[in-house]
Design a protein around this nucleic acid. Structure first.
Lengths: 133, 133
DNA sequence: CACTAAAGGACAATAATTATCCTTTTAGTT
DNA sequence: AACTAAAAGGATAATTATTGTCCTTTAGTG
């Protein structure tokens, strides 16, 4: 049993060929939009339905196998769930990368300011990547 | 000429009654979704078209009079453009608040890590507000 | 291998957003 | 204040995005 079969099952998701392929695409691509994912998937599964993509994306998000990343002025992308991290997106080419940043002091600060009990951060930095400068 | 008339024109937007009302709603409410905005607007302009709301929102975003804030697991909200700031959203009641946080060291850190030229940050903290705890 | 719940595919239905077209209004300019 | 061009508003059609339905197939378990 390959790796993603096990991980899918740990998230209460049956390991269908379509889902395994989705997991692999997400693994290789890192961050992908619905439409791009569909474009890639239809290569392997010529008769896959867009509804299947949506249904799986939604189930996978509900079961925390993947996460949605909302990008300013662009469509959302999805990624395999990993340790907490932030994102940086290139305004020219659109590429999304992970960055590992310590936000603990920011959270402390925000807690004092707001009196919220904070349990999650979503940080997206925007700029121009090395290649596009 | 009232305040928002002037500010709208500074953003190359004609100051129509509908737009002035939108500006006031945004001012009073702080952060509002398209559907909520439409619900409020239709009280004052019983025959306003939803298309007008969309057209104005888009124009106002393009001309930097307002900004979109993407909220995890919820619809986007819009706010009048202000100095750079972050947001904190209550997972229970959905209320969105501004927080003023210094992200400069975070940006330095991310710059080193990514080699991006960073020019914008979008940070949304999630948690439970005082009232909902 | 047999059984049951779940998943896939085709496609209809909804929801969200944008485009079109024609009338009215704004913001200058006489 | 009237005149005009460009823009905006409203109605509604069209498009795009997403979800639901129904029936067939498959995964996973015993």
């Amino acid at each position: 049993m390959n790796n993603y079969t096990r991980i899918l099952r740990e998230h209460n998701l049956k390991a269908t060929p379509q889902r395994l392929a989705m997991a692999n695409v997400l693994h290789v691509d890192g961050h992908i939009s619905i439409e791009s994912l569909y474009a890639v998937m239809i290569e392997k599964f010529t008769s896959i339905s867009l509804a299947t993509i949506y249904k799986n994306i939604n189930l996978m998000v509900e079961n925390s196998f993947i996460q949605e990343v909302k990008i300013p002025h662009a469509k959302s992308v999805y990624e395999l769930t990993k340790d907490t991290h932030s994102h940086i997106v290139c305004e020219k080419c659109g590429k999304v990368n992970d960055v590992s940043l310590d936000l603990s002091t920011i959270i402390d600060n925000a807690t004092k300011q707001s009196n919220f009990k904070i349990d999650k951060t979503d940080l997206v930095l925007s700029g121009v990547c090395k290649g596009c400068q």
